[in-house]
Design a binder for these strands. Structure first.
Length: 901
DNA sequence: GATCCGACAAGCA
DNA sequence: TGCTTGTCGGATC
């Protein structure tokens, strides 16, 4: 059962009248217990409760009925129960039918709510169904807009010094900004003494900033030199620390500050950089320094909660478990410290280093915790802990980044992370190596991750080492890639993947990581990705090769991309983590819920991998479903009602070339458009009408100018659609190709032969009515939602992937007749609500009861034809469908082998 | 010849 | 200015 189903089941219990004896069993059923387990519980053989009327169901829950108003007291009894202590149920639950008192035993968290809210509180009860709850790390409210101040400084400097805006000096300009930001950050977080940098600069910059550039140059030069080598620099620079680390190496120059730029510099220094979240520090600088990215302002940086969703299950959670287990044993903790010092993290699309910074910070935090514990366990000087300092080095962090500036920023961000970690170490242990000068640096390599050998950047692990590859590589849909991106991939994918050109750009990172993990053991990896690689045609083309030696160890199902940037990228993401195949178990994160499952399929559902491949015709013998007629006309063959009326009024005869035209929006919202529909032999007749002539000429021009080599030849027949489906004889059944995910059933409509359906619908021409009963079923929606692609998260209907693969049993004639009758009932019920449209009728909040009822009837009828009864839930629906599909594929394969033999 | 897709795009409040 | 919802035609097999 999935959480929605648990929610539904609990809501039903909450609405029904309360029966203290029956409640624990319906609660067990609602939280996914099998019928067999419930009947054993009911006859007492597995009920271990030691409380009157109580039911203790294994590790799931311990329930006891309460007298009116005494739920809380009963909960205390449950807590005190010996059987609770020995059986360790996940949930304690007491209720008098009015109020609920419950406790989550692992965390000690309690819940007190009205009985009626049982359904709404389903999240609390998920542990009773064997599902953990997932809590996302809350994101610090970071003011990305502070970047605006830096941007203004940047712009003002360019305005005052136009030559600094040229390509030749852009790198210097960027460097200047980065160094300034480093200094402002450093003085606010205590790397430099209190306000040291800005105090000196503003003292020696002159009243209006006329000397600011000189002061900055002097300060930067000083920071690049050990104190005793600073000859020829103003005496005041002696106060500044030697920073090194490459940050102040190379040419040092600064543009002149006019009064405006100087004011912005003051404002920027005035910001409290200590409050800026260093995790996204890099992304901020990047968006300031790169005017091209200004409009996106950090649109694609990964938020800390999302980074945690990747690196948590990838390695931090394991470490936490290990630390927890060894908490009382110094030896075990020492071992964990050793393990951590051999962990290396590699982000092959590191941008400004967010993943590396957060990974570093989290590792350091755990290390500190362990060392504190070691001191507690063994006293201050035992086991040499007083000598100990961090063994997690920033040169264990590797990255590849294509932009030079971002790569530099990543190094800087890691320096800062190191400073901060050392500072908090010092606060706890009172010791710390000297902060300055900077020593080792992160291994950030500038270049194209798809061209560089990864093992040259991040060398293969030796015996003690573990490598974790993580990141958020760029997503580019196959149709949106540049020719360079395409060629990056062709070399890579040619041999191992069929139809590799349909894969998203992000697939390349998964593949290279797979190759790395196959070559070197002790390598696990996880990436944020667009959800499209887990859907539709990409699944059968991409995943079979990836999963040859790896398995999906954890996955977060689709979630909307979000970060603190002012405008967010519109994309739905998933996170997928892989490990070698021999490791057992997997974790599936779905919204707030974690489930431990035995395997995760590339569709990110908890079943073993089955790949649904598109098919040219139905493998279960369903009628042929076609693609609608596609204009590709620049809009010129399509007429609104007004345009049509106007033409017909002027030229009544021309009406014979005009047909009704329905796309998916027209079907769903009950609208009408019209189109020109001209057969080859009528082309010259139609061309006589001036409005048609104008439009046909426009189509010719549009197609001639198309970048698509397939479209250009169709400029020769500009009077007709780019692609036309077969002629309709009696009627057509239309299925919109894209439809809102909110609707409980897929929209499907029956229209007469006079209608032309656009390519935005799939069409069954002159097909039997029972097809409507199939398409309008819950069963079909569940299949389509799983195996077809999506537009973001909305359903996308495909004939090859969805209809032609949809598993059906062999129907008898009587069954088909019953389904046809059911289809007619649905249509009739819809018509009774005229003029309500499909969009109105299938709005989940407004769906009329009678329509719901006929759909339920249709579902029950169809599902009984599969298993002799309705399915219990969507999980069961999918399991059955995938089994039928897999079995069919197997028989087809055997048959074709036999044929060959 | 026939699709499947979109770090979206457009339309409404 | 957020939220909902599916156009349109290129690129690919």
């Amino acid at each position: 059962m999935n959480p929605t189903e648990i929610y539904d089941a609990l809501s039903q219990i909450a609405e029904a009248s309360f029966d203290a004896e029956e409640f624990p069993f319906s609660f067990a059923e609602a939280t996914d217990a099998s019928q067999a387990a419930i009947s054993k519980l009911r006859n007492g053989s597995t009920n271990k409760s030691d409380l009157p009327g109580g039911v203790l169901f294994g590790r799931r829950f311990h329930y006891a009925p309460a007298t009116t108003g005494k739920s809380d007291t009963t909960l205390e009894q449950l807590r005190a129960s010996k059987k609770t202590k020995s059986s360790k149920p996940a949930i304690l639950l007491a209720t008098d039918g009015e109020m609920i008192a419950a406790e989550h035993t692992a965390s000690g968290e309690t819940l007190h709510c009205a009985f009626k809210e049982l359904g709404d509180q389903f999240g609390f009860f998920l542990p009773a169904a064997g599902k953990e709850r997932y809590r996302a790390v809350e994101e610090n409210p970071v003011d990305v807009k502070a970047t605006g101040k830096l941007a203004k400084l940047y712009d003002a400097l360019i305005r005052a010094n136009p030559d600094w805006g040229t390509d030749a000096r852009r790198h210097e300009m960027n460097q200047l900004m980065m160094r300034l930001i480093f200094c402002m950050f450093a003085e606010d977080v205590g790397i430099f003494p209190e306000q040291q940098f800005s105090r000196l600069i503003f003292t020696y910059a002159g009243d209006k900033g006329e000397e600011a550039h000189k002061a900055i140059i002097a300060a930067f030069r000083a920071m690049n030199l050990p104190t005793h080598e600073r000859t020829g620099l103003p005496a005041w620079t002696g106060e500044l620390d030697y920073v090194n680390g490459g940050l102040f190496a190379g040419t040092i120059d600064a543009p002149k500050f006019d009064t405006i730029a100087f004011r912005y510099l003051r404002e920027a220094c005035g910001l409290d950089w200590g409050k800026i979240n260093p995790d996204i520090f890099g992304s901020m600088i990047q968006s300031v320094a790169d005017p091209k990215q200004r409009s996106e302002l950090g649109m694609h940086y990964t938020s800390v909660p999302n980074i945690m969703k990747v690196i948590g299950p990838l390695f931090l959670d394991d470490l936490d478990a290990e630390i927890h287990k060894g908490w009382d044993r110094a030896r075990a903790l020492q071992q964990t410290l050793g393990r951590m010092s051999h962990i290396r993290v590699f982000d092959p699309a590191c941008g400004s280093g967010n993943f590396l910074v957060v990974s570093y910070r989290e590792l350091r935090a755990r290390e500190t915790r362990i060392m504190q514990r070691l001191e507690e366990l063994d006293g201050r000087n035992a086991m040499g802990t007083s000598e100990m300092f961090s063994r997690i080095k920033i040169d264990h962090f590797y990255g590849i980044e294509i932009s030079d500036f971002a790569a530099e920023t990543a190094k800087l961000a890691l320096f800062i992370a190191e400073y901060q970690a050392n500072a908090s170490f010092k606060a706890i242990f009172g010791r710390c190596p000297a902060a300055l000068p900077l020593r080792d640096a992160a291994r950030i390599h500038r270049g194209n991750a798809l061209e560089i050998e990864w093992e040259a950047v991040c060398p293969p692990p030796n015996n003690d080492e573990e490598i974790f590859i993580a990141g958020n590589p760029p997503f580019v849909g196959s149709n949106f890639q540049t020719s360079e991106q395409k060629s990056d991939r062709s070399e890579l994918f040619k041999s191992d993947f069929k139809s590799y050109k349909n894969l998203d750009y992000v697939a390349s990172w998964f593949y290279l990581a797979t190759l790395y993990a196959e070559a070197f053991c002790r390598t696990n990896f996880a990436f944020v990705s667009t959800n499209s690689i887990t859907q539709g045609r990409q699944v059968p083309s991409f995943w079979p090769r990836i999963l040859e030696n790896q398995k999906i160890r954890f996955a977060h199902t689709s979630f909307q991309w979000r970060n603190n940037a002012s405008s967010n990228a519109a994309v739905i993401c998933v996170i997928i983590g892989l490990c070698p195949k021999y490791i057992s178990g997997a974790k599936l994160f779905d919204g707030k819920v974690i489930s431990d499952v035995s395997s995760i399929s590339p569709y990110l559902i908890p079943i073993p991998p089955v790949y649904v491949e598109g098919s040219g015709k139905s493998i279960f013998g369903l009628p042929r479903m076609d693609y609608g007629s596609k204009p590709a006309d620049g809009g010129n063959l399509i007429l609104s009602t007004e345009e049509r009326d106007e033409i017909v009024q002027l030229y009544p005869d021309s009406n014979r070339f005009i047909r009704k035209y329905l796309g998916s929006q027209e079907v769903v919202r009950g609208q009408v458009r019209y189109c020109m529909w001209i057969k080859d032999q009528e082309a010259s007749d139609a061309y006589q009408y001036p409005p048609f002539q104008k439009r046909i000429d426009a189509v010719r021009q549009f197609r001639t100018e198309s970048s698509n080599p397939v479209t250009r030849p169709t400029a020769a027949t500009p009077y007709k659609f780019w692609f036309t489906g077969p002629e309709t004889k009696t009627h057509a059944i239309l299925v919109p190709r894209v439809t809102s995910e909110r609707r409980p059933y897929l929209p499907v409509e029956r229209v007469g032969a006079d209608v032309i359906s656009s390519d935005l619908n799939q069409v069954l021409y002159d097909a039997p009515e029972w097809c409507i009963a199939l398409i309008a079923s819950r069963l079909h929606l569940v299949w389509i939602a799983t195996v077809c692609g999506k537009l973001k998260s909305d359903f996308r209907y495909s004939n090859t992937l969805g209809w032609n693969t949809f598993p059906v049993p062999k129907f008898t004639d009587e069954q088909l007749e019953a389904l046809s009758a059911s289809a007619r009932r649905i249509l009739k019920c819809r018509y009774s609500h005229y003029p309500k449209t499909i969009a109105d009728l299938y709005d989940p909040d407004k769906m009329p009861d009678d329509l719901r009822a006929v759909h339920k009837e249709n579902d029950d009828l169809l599902e009984s034809m599969y298993i002799g009864r309705p399915f219990r839930n969507d999980t069961e629906r999918l399991e059955t469908l995938f089994k039928l599909y897999a079995a069919k594929i197997k028989t087809l394969e055997t048959a074709s082998k036999k044929k060959k033999a």
